[in-house]
């Protein structure tokens, strides 16, 4: 059984909150209120999610997993697609992309018996993949808009050379996909040396042997890497077309 942190111990976390509060007071940063509020909000959210997860874990695996995945994917899609305001169908396509990625990782995980179909395994693992894909999609959408704006001259030059929109976009799409991969490539190089990844830390604290914990970490790190690159790629290969009309001309995107 994992060691528990008692309520009394939890209470002393107040000291951690008091440090930024006193700094804010001392340097007149005017942040005291928002520090209290965000700490309070964060704690409450985590307690709530603790109860929600406890409840979901007690349900039939299929029911619990479906409910939680649906919520996570909807929230992630809404959040990621905000970055792509002005692009047609951005919400529904983002939703579909995340669904696709989730299906892909689930098939891998379950198909090769990396994890079992239990809420306490599928939900946290999926949460990490969905969360990272959400960030990757948001970044890809944002980059896409800015690249198409800054790189407009290049795209027009490519069209003027006889390129189809797909071929013209390639010069920018390459850049966007590459940019989405670099943080992961860098992250994997130093993983475990500087900071133990969150998931592994959690498992070790929960009493799992380090040599077992790293196996889960490897599964999740590589799954995230794959999903993040896939998200950026899918987003760009799906959305580039909305920057052109049917006569292979660039269209003006509405500013958001």
């Amino acid at each position: 059984m994992a060691p528990e942190i008692s309520n009394v111990s939890m209470f002393f976390l107040v000291f951690f909150v008091l440090i930024p509060v006193s700094l804010s007071y001392f340097y007149a940063l005017g942040l005291s209120k928002s520090i209290f509020w965000s700490s309070f909000r964060g704690v409450t959210q985590l307690f709530l999610i603790g109860y929600v997860l406890t409840y979901l874990f007690s349900l039939e695996p299929l029911t619990g997993i479906s409910i939680m995945l649906t919520v996570m994917i909807v929230v992630a899609a809404l959040h990621a697609s905000k970055k792509g305001q002005g692009i047609p169908f951005v919400r529904s396509i983002t939703f579909l992309v995340i669904v696709l990625i989730e299906i892909f990782v689930l098939v891998m995980w379950l198909g090769f018996d990396m994890i079992s179909f239990q809420p306490d395994q599928v939900i946290p693992m999926s949460g990490m993949v969905i969360g990272n894909s959400m960030v990757a999609i948001g970044l890809a959408l944002e980059r896409m808009k800015s690249e198409f704006k800054e790189g407009k001259g290049k795209i027009i030059a490519a069209l003027a050379l006889g390129a189809k929109p797909e071929q013209a976009s390639k010069i920018l799409v390459r850049k966007i996909v590459k940019a989405s991969m670099i943080p992961n490539v860098d992250g994997l190089k130093t993983i475990g040396l500087v900071q133990l990844p969150g998931m592994m830390t959690g498992l070790i604290l929960g009493g799992v042997a380090p040599i077992e914990a790293i196996r889960y970490q490897i599964v999740i790190s590589l799954s995230i890497f794959a999903s993040v690159s896939l998200s950026a790629m899918l987003v760009t290969v799906i959305f580039y077309r909305f920057f052109f009309n049917k006569n292979q001309q660039m269209i003006q995107m509405k500013e958001s």
């Binding site: 001259g153 290049k154 027009i156 030059a157 490519a158 069209l159 003027a160 050379l161 006889g162 390129a163 189809k164 010069i171 850049k175 292979q248």
Partner: peptide
């Protein structure tokens, strides 16, 4: 694509693609 190939255009800002001179010439 044929029309744009046959009626070529050069722009003010050179709008070259990232990469080598050859990459640009062969595009």
């Amino acid at each position: 694509e044929q029309l744009r190939k046959r009626i070529g255009m050069v722009f003010q800002s050179s709008s070259l693609f990232e990469g080598s001179v050859e990459d640009n010439l062969k595009f």
